[in-house]
C-alpha cells in the first residue's frame, strides 16, 4: 500500500519553541485522517506542513522529511504554488472572497492560468455538485458569496478547493464555526469526498473525528502520542493519555 503523505523524524521549531517532535506518520490515499489533541498540541501546525502554509509565519524551522506523493516538498526546487494546487485547504472560518458565488469557485482556475470560459463553467458546476451545494445556489450564481449562510459558505470554500482538482484536502476545524445542522452536512460531505480525495482534518470535536475519520492521530505537547484506526482509538486506545483525552478527563 503506498502512502500519499508521509513524515519522517519531523521536527518543527517556532524560533526556540519545539512545536513538533519527531513525528513519524503515514497516510494512505482515499482515507480520512483526523488530528486531535488539546489546543496548542501542534496538530494545526502539522496540518499546515503539507501545503507549506507554515512558510507564511516567521521563524519556522523544519528538520526531517515531509513527503507528498513520494516527493519531499521541502526540497529547494519545490514549486509551492504547484504544491498548493495539489493540496487544497479549507479553513476554520468560512472565508469566501468578496465575489460572486461563481467567481469564488472559478478563482482557483483563473489564478492558475485557465481562461477557457466553457471549461471554467463546467468545472464550477461540477465542484458545486461535489460539495453538495449546487441545488442551493444554481439559481443565484451571480449573487455575492456573502449572502450565503455560514454552512453554505463553508461548502462553497470546499467547492473552491475542489475546482482545481487537488488530490489532498486539508481541513482545519472546518465545522467549528458552524451550527450543528451545517456541521452534520459538512461531515457527510467529508465522508462522500473520501471516494476521490485524501482528507486530513484537524478537529477539536472528538465525536467529529470519530464519525468522519478512518484513522486518528492524537497529539499532545508536540508529540504524536497515538496513531491508528479510529475504531481502535475510540474503543481501545493503547495509551493512557489518549484514553484520558477522548473520555474528556483532561485537555
Amino acid at each position: 500500500m503506498n502512502h500519499i503523505i508521509a513524515t519522517e523524524k519531523l521536527n518543527l521549531f517556532y524560533n526556540d519553541f519545539h512545536a513538533l517532535k519527531d513525528i513519524n506518520m503515514k497516510m494512505r490515499a482515499n482515507t480520512v485522517t483526523a488530528l486531535i489533541g488539546p489546543s496548542g498540541c501542534g496538530k494545526s501546525t502539522y496540518l499546515r506542513l503539507f501545503n507549506r502554509m507554515n512558510d507564511l509565519i516567521d521563524g519556522v524551522k523544519i528538520t526531517g522529511d515531509v513527503r507528498v506523493e513520494g516527493k519531499d516538498i521541502y526540497e529547494k526546487n519545490t514549486d509551492v504554488v504547484d504544491l498548493r494546487r495539489k493540496v487544497g485547504m479549507v479553513f476554520q472560518k468560512p472565508n469566501p472572497f468578496p465575489k460572486t458565488i461563481f467567481e469564488n469557485v472559478a478563482y482557483g482556475l483563473r489564478v492558475n492560468g485557465i481562461n477557457d470560459n466553457g471549461f471554467i463553467k463546467d468545472k464550477v458546476e461540477q465542484s458545486l455538485v461535489q460539495s453538495a451545494l449546487w441545488d442551493e445556489v444554481k439559481d443565484k450564481m451571480n449573487k455575492s458569496a456573502f449572502e450565503l449562510s455560514g454552512g453554505q459558505q463553508q461548502r462553497l470554500c470546499i467547492a473552491r478547493a475542489l475546482a482545481i482538482e487537488p488530490s489532498i484536502i486539508l481541513m482545519d476545524e472546518p465545522a467549528s464555526a458552524l451550527d450543528p445542522i451545517s456541521t452534520a452536512k459538512i461531515e457527510e460531505l467529508i465522508y462522500e469526498l473520501k471516494q476521490n480525495y485524501t482528507i486530513v482534518i484537524v478537529t477539536h470535536n472528538m465525536q467529529q473525528a470519530a464519525r468522519v475519520s478512518d484513522h486518528t492521530a492524537f497529539f499532545y505537547l508536540g508529540e504524536l502520542i497515538e496513531y491508528g484506526e479510529t475504531k481502535e482509538i475510540f474503543t481501545n486506545p493503547k495509551d493512557k493519555k489518549t484514553q484520558n483525552y477522548i473520555t474528556g478527563r483532561f485537555g
Binding site: M53, R84, G88, M89, F91, N95, F97, P98, V111
Partner: peptide, 27 residues
C-alpha cells in the same frame, strides 16, 4: 483585510501578487 482571505488565496495556488491584486485590493 482579514488574513484568512490572504490564506484562502495562497491555499488555492495563487501567487502573492495574484492574491494582493485579486483578493486583498478589491476588499
Amino acid at each position: 483585510v482579514d488574513d484568512s482571505f490572504r490564506h484562502g488565496g495562497y491555499a488555492l495556488g495563487a501567487t502573492k501578487l495574484q492574491t494582493i491584486r485579486r483578493v486583498v485590493l478589491p476588499i
